[in-house]
Design a protein around this nucleic acid. Sequence first.
DNA 1: ATTGAAACGACTAGAGA
DNA 2: TCTCTAGTCGTTTCAAT
Lengths: 158, 158
Amino acid sequence: MPLKADLDAIDWKILRELQGDGRMTNVELSSRVGISAPPCLRRVRRLEEAGIIRGYRALLNAPALGMDVVAFCLIGLHHQADAELKTFAERTRGWPIVRDAWMVSGESDFLLHCVASDLGTFQTFVIEQLASAPNVDTVRTALTIRRVKDEGLVAFPT
Amino acid sequence: MPLKADLDAIDWKILRELQGDGRMTNVELSSRVGISAPPCLRRVRRLEEAGIIRGYRALLNAPALGMDVVAFCLIGLHHQADAELKTFAERTRGWPIVRDAWMVSGESDFLLHCVASDLGTFQTFVIEQLASAPNVDTVRTALTIRRVKDEGLVAFPT
DNA sequence: ATTGAAACGACTAGAGA
DNA sequence: TCTCTAGTCGTTTCAAT
C-alpha cells in the first residue's frame, strides 16, 4: 500500500484516461496525454506497480446477463470486536451474491452490494444466509431501481 | 439495452476473463477461452456492441491519490413523484463527490457512493449541498473503514 | 460459425539527446 | 527525464473450410 505518490500532471491525465477507458492502447493514451509511447508505457507500469492502478475490469451489464436484482444491504452486528468484524468480513467473501462489501461506521457495520438473478433468489439469500448468520443483528435492504450515475472512483477536474 | 442475449459457454468465459482483467490482450484471452484470436475478437466486439460489456475501467486506489474519505449516503426525499426523482438524479450528476448513484426502493430513495479528500470536505458537502438540496428529507451516512470484498458485478461459477 | 496466413499496427527495449 | 529507431509481438482482415 503506497503512501501518497508524487504524480505530475501527465500521470494524472493517464489515470483519468484509463479510468475512462481501461482498454485504450498505449499509443492512443500517449497521444492523449501529450508524450510519446515509451515513457507513457513506463509511467503506466510504474502506476500499476505502485498500486495506484489496482487493476482493470470490463464493466458488465448485469440485467442483460440475467441478473435482474441489484441491491444493497446494510448489516448491523451484535458484537463489533475486531475478531467478530473479521469473521463477518470473511463470511461475505464466501457468498457469491455479495459482489463487493465495505466495513462502515455509522448506524451499520457493513454495507454489501448484492446481485442475484431474481427476487426469490435474493430473498432466500437474505433470510437463510445473511440474517441467520452468527452475530447478525439487523439487515436493511435497498433494492436498486436503476443506476443514476456511474463514473470511476476518483474525480478528475475537467 | 439488450434483452437477454444468447451466449454460449465461450462467451461466458470471455466475460469472466475480461471482468477479471480488462486489459488482457486478445491473444491471451483467446488462448484462455480455447479458440483462436480472430473469432475471439469478433465475440468481444459483439459483446461490446450488444451493450453486454458496458466499457472498461482502470481501478484506482483512492487513498493513494489523496482521496481519504469514501462514504455511502442514503437519501430520503419528501416527494417521490417521477419528476422529483429525475430532478434529484440529475442533481447528483453535477456533484463530483458523488461517484456513482442508484435510485433505490426501501427506506431510502437514493444511495450515493461518495469520495472526498478529507472529512471536512465531505461534511461540508453533506451539509451545504446534499442535505440542503430541494426536496431532501433525510440523509444517513456510512463512512467506509475498509473494503472487504471487491469483485466484478457479475458472479461466475468457477 | 471456425482456422490459418498475411498485412498492419502497437508494444517495448535500446541508444542518444 | 524524453524522443527516435527498430525488432518483436499482437491485432485484424481475408480467403478457405
